[in-house]
């Protein structure tokens, strides 16, 4: 145990212990047991992003490990972890040149664009069969439907709009897929470290971990992470949403005080 303690932050210890306790039970079927480093991420005034560590172990593979260690595990199983932000509706617009000026013209409305989507896998490349498996499960950016209901429109252009969402979100680090991002730090202990970007939307995010063997899901776990503003930021946000006009009056008052103070301090005349 001591070696492990030095490996991790103290905050990971308790969930890790839980994993070891659980992993000693039920060794018949292969089953995932996972834990996460935080259940809440607070956006404080100095927030510029954060980290989220997902770690886990696979129950019921003691024999395999005894034979071939973690390489045997990696050969046989695939692990995928996805952190998905709350879905939101959105309109994607494309500019067109009209009379020399670039104007938003065509648009496609999606009903459920994940506000963020971070994914890591334990493998480098996927074959066609496995792609189909992921598609059925709607795992991965290529397989997330974005809630487009109207399939009657031209398929090619819709794909362009979809790809644009992915591209724009990737630029803000809100979407990211990292093959081979999951590391086995021990024979039966994997770790996926996610960078939570600065622009991460608030709300409930869902972390889903999948265990695959032969393109089939063997086991799946899910955790909820709440990303929330805190303290002054939360107070201001709630105030501005619930009492918009009063908030506006406070803003005006603050401006007047600042303006008055400046005229007193600097004696403009």
């Amino acid at each position: 145990m001591k070696n492990f303690i030095t490996l991790f932050q103290k905050s990971l210890l308790i969930p890790l212990l839980a994993i070891f306790l659980f992993s000693s039970q039920n060794s018949l079927a292969q089953e995932l047991v996972t834990g996460i480093s935080h259940e809440k991420i607070y956006i404080t005034s100095d927030f510029t992003g954060s980290e989220m560590i997902v770690f886990g172990t696979i129950n019921g593979i003691e024999n395999l490990i005894a034979q071939g260690g973690k390489n045997a595990v990696l050969d046989r199983y695939k692990v995928v972890v996805a952190v998905e932000g709350p879905e939101e509706p959105g309109v994607v617009r494309k500019k067109a040149n009209i009379l020399g000026i670039w104007i938003n013209r065509d648009n496609v409305a999606f009903t459920a664009i994940p506000s963020s989507y971070l994914m890591m896998t334990s493998y480098e490349e996927k074959d066609e069969n496995f792609k189909n498996t992921l598609e059925e499960l709607r795992v991965g950016l290529d397989h997330t439907p974005f809630g487009l209901l109207d399939a009657a429109s031209d398929g090619v252009s819709i794909a362009n709009f979809r790809n644009a969402v992915i591209r724009l979100k990737e630029e803000k680090n809100l979407y990211k897929e990292m093959n081979n991002g999951i590391h086995f730090i021990a024979d039966n202990l994997f770790k996926a470290k996610f960078d939570i970007p600065a622009l991460i939307p608030v709300g409930d995010h869902v972390i889903t971990t999948y265990l695959f063997e032969d393109n089939k899901v063997l086991s799946k776990t899910s955790h909820k992470v709440t990303i929330t503003k805190t303290g002054f930021e939360q107070l201001m946000y709630d105030f501005s949403r619930n009492y918009g006009y009063i908030y506006g009056i406070v803003c005006v008052f603050l401006a007047m005080v600042t303006g008055w103070l400046s005229s007193v301090i600097f004696k403009r005349d």
Binding site: G90, V92, R93, K94, N97
Partner: peptide, 12 residues
């Protein structure tokens, strides 16, 4: 000519 033709906006 913009480098990015697409934008994501609020739903109507």
């Amino acid at each position: 000519t913009p480098t990015e033709l697409f934008t994501i906006g609020l739903a109507a």
